[in-house]
Design a protein around this nucleic acid. Structure first.
Length: 554
RNA sequence: UGGGCUAUAGCCAAAUGGUAAGGCACUGGACUCUGACUCCAGCAUUUACAGGUUCGAGCCCUGUUAGCCCAGCCA
């Protein structure tokens, strides 16, 4: 973070600086214009933070605007969640919360203006006929037979459209541009349709709705947006965007700039797919931690800071690309590293008994919450004769360079004493169930003892005091580039990417943990108290991310 | 096969005619009350390919290849 100066400007910043230098604009106004038809995901975070960041650095403003021009897909639930997510990310829009649907009167007037200029006409072609007339990628289209209606006739017909004289789909209003254009978007695109649908915000006030290509530039112009930033698939729409802005004679023409969407390797991004996984009950909802929706990432324990760091690291460009998921993990580790307490938790326990430690005795050890950040203070943890340690921290027959516990070896119990393994007990099946050690009282942590050193340090919890909790090890739902769904609709991803550890042991200091509290479970990774499933009696932890793997056999 | 866009390391990404930044990942070493963290070192004689212009090209020109987007009354 301290090397911010070395981060070079992205291409959008360069365009903006040129625009400012050439006097096209003084300040920068941007917007995030989601359609409220789903929850936001990590890809949207890129757009939000990009738009918000630009407004910040160039002394402008950032608007949140719901592009709610198609009532069939939109719901109030989604506008609420989107607002929450945008705020969570820290993109502040103050009172600049807008709805495209509030501009319907202006859009209607704009359409009338185009008609009066002879640049729009009412067309009676059916959807199917329209498709035929439009031509194909390689063949030009042909003019609609209704293209030459008079201004007066168009005005009257359009007003009738608004007044509900026609059935849904019976007539549309089209821009009169060029049916021969190699760009299909310019072949007399539809700008208004008749659709009797209940709008989540406008109710039944309208039975005609504007199309995106017509509505969006108007929305931007009304809000004095200077730079309308969208994704690559709208590049072909830019000539139409510019056409609308020009013909409507806005004096403050906004400029559309496109950038590449964010994809993550092997995870399901895309609102469409996430939505289907939710609707098909493959996952438990929009905030299922196996997803990369913002709600899911939040529930899993990702912080807004980590998401911000991530999108900054990823950068902004025009090349389609897929970012390594490890980059996201790096960002959350980096963010939590110094911010969160490191507690001891044993996920796969095996009992360790210290034979020479007095039975029934408990001593409280004062330990640092985070060795690297003293500001997080200290806490006390109980130590006693019977402990749990991680099963992988003991081996009967250790390979070379294994320096944790094995018969005869001495290791440090983190924050406590050195112990030496004397013997171990197996059950009938040969599974090790108990390890016996002796401890050396002189080696207590913080005592300054340095007469001898050990190579290994392992974590533990006191068996009698440990808190039982549930841990969930989520993996992302993997998309192996074959698509999330097969053509027949069957699922093509692995949804079984959830491991639940019903009973793990955590040191008692986490007893009062609240929702969203997160900890580093020493060597087991970062975990967050699940906001949905935790109760004071039973803590449920979602794993945010693992630490890098430890000992590897060569 | 029409139009638009893109191509720099395993993954992102900078370099705007002056001799290939940075990050992630990975590898080696040092350190360590965890093998994590931190630190140090290594990691593109070359920018999809082939030509050309130039004293000099990832950048300019020509051609080729590959990928993405567009034929909703969705956004």
């Amino acid at each position: 973070m301290e090397n911010e100066a070395t981060i070079s400007k992205n291409f959008i910043e360069q365009i903006i600086e040129k625009d400012i230098a050439e006097g096209h604009c003084k300040v920068v106004k941007t917007r995030f214009p989601p359609e409220p038809n789903g929850y936001l995901h990590i890809g949207h975070a890129k757009s939000i933070l990009l738009n918000y960041g630009l407004a910040q650095t160039y002394g402008g403003q950032f608007n949140l605007r719901f592009d709610d021009t198609n009532p069939t897909k939109e719901k109030e639930e989604f506008v609420d969640s989107i607002k929450a997510d945008v705020e969570w990310l820290g993109a502040v829009y103050d009172d600049r919360l807008y709805y495209a649907s509030d501009y319907f009167p202006q859009m209607y007037e704009a359409a009338v203006k185009l008609i009066k200029k002879g640049l729009a006409f009412v067309c009676d072609l059916s959807a199917e006929q329209m498709r035929e007339y439009r031509g194909t990628l390689t063949e030009v289209g042909k003019n609609s037979p209704y293209r030459d209606r008079t201004v007066e006739e168009n005005l009257e017909l359009f007003e009738n459209m608004k007044n509900g004289v026609y059935k849904d789909g019976e007539k549309v209003l089209r821009a009169k541009i060029n049916m021969q254009s190699p760009n299909i978007n310019m072949r007399d695109p539809i700008i208004y349709r008749v659709a009797r649908q209940h709008h989540h915000r406008q109710g039944d006030a309208w039975c005609i709705y504007p199309m995106y290509d017509f509505a969006h530039p108007i929305e931007d112009a009304i809000e004095n947006i200077t730079h309308s930033i969208c994704t690559l698939e709208f590049e072909d729409h830019r000539p139409l965007y510019d056409w609308v802005v020009k013909e409507l004679e806005y004096t403050n023409p906004p400029k559309q700039i496109e950038f590449a969407k964010l994809y993550l390797t092997n995870v399901v991004t895309g609102k469409r797919y996430i939505k289907k996984l939710v609707e098909d009950n493959v996952v438990d909802g929009w905030d299922d931690p196996r997803l990369v929706s913002l709600a899911a990432l939040r529930r899993r324990g990702f912080t807004p800071e980590s998401i911000k760091m991530f999108v900054e690291l990823v950068g902004v460009a025009k090349a389609n690309s897929s970012v390594d998921y490890a980059m996201l993990e790096y960002c959350i580790r980096e963010d939590l590293k110094l911010k969160k307490p490191r507690v001891m938790a044993v996920l796969d326990p095996i009992k360790l008994i210290i034979d020479n430690y007095p039975e029934g005795q408990t001593e409280m050890l004062e330990v640092h919450n985070n060795m690297e950040n003293p500001e997080l203070g200290n806490r006390e943890i109980p130590f006693s004769r019977e402990l749990y340690i991680e099963r992988e921290d003991f081996m009967e027959e250790p390979p070379k360079k294994y320096f944790r516990l094995f018969p005869g070896n001495e290791v440090r119990l983190m924050n406590a004493y050195f112990v030496t393994c004397k013997e171990y007990i197996k059950d009938d099946s040969g599974k090790v169930i108990e390890i016996h050690c002796t401890y050396d009282p002189e080696t207590k942590s913080g005592s300054g003892f340095n007469a001898r050193k050990v190579k290994g340090t392992i974590h533990w919890v006191s068996a009698a005091h440990a808190l039982e909790a549930e841990a969930r090890l989520y993996e992302n739902i993997v998309d192996e580039e074959k698509g999330v769904y097969n053509e027949d609709g069957s699922l093509n991803v692995n949804p079984n990417s959830l491991t639940v550890i019903e009973k793990c042991f955590i040191e008692p200091s986490v007893a009062g943990a609240k929702k969203y509290d997160s900890f580093q479970f020493v060597r087991n990774g970062y975990f967050c108290v699940d906001v949905k499933d935790s109760t004071p009696e039973k803590l449920v932890f979602n794993r945010i991310v693992s630490l890098k793997s430890s000992f590897k056999l060569k």
